[in-house]
Simulated assay, not measured.
Amino acid sequence: MPEKREPEPSDEGELVNLSQLAAELGVTRQWLHALRTKDPAFPASRRRPGSTRELWDLTEARAYYKARELRPGERTDLKPPPQQ
């Protein structure tokens, strides 16, 4: 029977991919991708040695998401119709 390996100690928190991060934050993967490409304050991704998959620290991403500035869109339902 193969030996069970103990997880290696790490100073990283829980690392998740973009789909998992979107599910944790309750947003779509597409919206999260747009946010990370537009906002330079979005946490940087990490890669495990030998991997090309981007991963994010869940604790770091949650802290960013909670602290980010909300910019709601303009409500068009309250504006009068345009004059013609």
Rank of each mutant, 00 (worst) to 15 (best):
residue 29 R to T: 10
residue 30 Q to D: 13
residue 54 E to T: 15
residue 43 P to N: 01
residue 54 E to W: 12
residue 37 T to I: 09
residue 20 Q to G: 05
residue 34 A to S: 10
residue 42 F to H: 02
residue 17 N to M: 07
residue 20 Q to M: 09
residue 31 W to F: 11
residue 45 S to E: 04
residue 8 E to M: 13
residue 22 A to R: 02
residue 77 D to C: 08
residue 54 E to Q: 09
residue 76 T to R: 15
residue 22 A to C: 08
residue 65 Y to C: 01
residue 35 L to F: 05
residue 6 E to P: 04
residue 29 R to F: 05
residue 34 A to G: 07
residue 13 G to Y: 04
residue 48 R to E: 12
residue 39 D to P: 01
residue 61 A to D: 00
residue 13 G to L: 10
residue 47 R to Y: 08
residue 25 L to D: 01
residue 6 E to S: 15
residue 63 A to Y: 07
residue 8 E to V: 11
residue 5 R to P: 06
residue 52 T to Q: 10
residue 39 D to K: 02
residue 3 E to Q: 13
residue 47 R to C: 10
residue 27 V to F: 10
residue 1 M to V: 07
residue 10 S to G: 15
residue 46 R to S: 09
residue 80 P to H: 12
residue 13 G to W: 06
residue 3 E to Y: 05
residue 63 A to H: 07
residue 50 G to T: 03
residue 70 L to P: 00
residue 37 T to A: 06
residue 73 G to E: 06
residue 41 A to E: 08
residue 55 L to C: 02
residue 14 E to T: 14
residue 75 R to D: 14
residue 23 A to Y: 08
residue 2 P to L: 13
residue 20 Q to S: 04
residue 43 P to D: 01
residue 80 P to N: 11
residue 84 Q to V: 12
residue 59 T to E: 08
residue 47 R to Q: 10
residue 19 S to K: 15
residue 5 R to I: 10
residue 71 R to V: 07
residue 1 M to F: 11
residue 84 Q to Y: 12
residue 6 E to D: 15
residue 71 R to C: 09
residue 70 L to T: 04
residue 40 P to L: 08
residue 22 A to D: 07
residue 37 T to P: 07
residue 58 L to I: 03
residue 33 H to R: 06
residue 17 N to D: 15
residue 35 L to A: 03
residue 44 A to K: 13
residue 58 L to H: 01
residue 2 P to M: 11
residue 56 W to T: 00
residue 52 T to F: 06
residue 14 E to P: 14
residue 82 P to K: 00
residue 61 A to T: 02
residue 51 S to K: 07
residue 67 A to H: 05
residue 35 L to Y: 10
residue 42 F to P: 00
residue 24 E to K: 02
residue 3 E to H: 09
residue 29 R to W: 02
residue 32 L to T: 00
residue 56 W to P: 00
residue 26 G to S: 03
residue 44 A to P: 09
residue 9 P to M: 11
residue 9 P to H: 08
residue 76 T to D: 13
residue 56 W to S: 00
residue 81 P to D: 15
residue 69 E to H: 04
residue 80 P to C: 09
residue 31 W to Y: 13
residue 59 T to W: 03
residue 33 H to I: 06
residue 76 T to H: 14
residue 40 P to E: 08
residue 31 W to I: 14
residue 28 T to S: 07
residue 31 W to D: 12
residue 43 P to S: 02
residue 25 L to G: 00
residue 45 S to Y: 08
residue 1 M to I: 07
residue 58 L to S: 00
residue 53 R to A: 14
residue 83 Q to T: 06
residue 28 T to G: 03
residue 68 R to S: 10
residue 15 L to N: 02
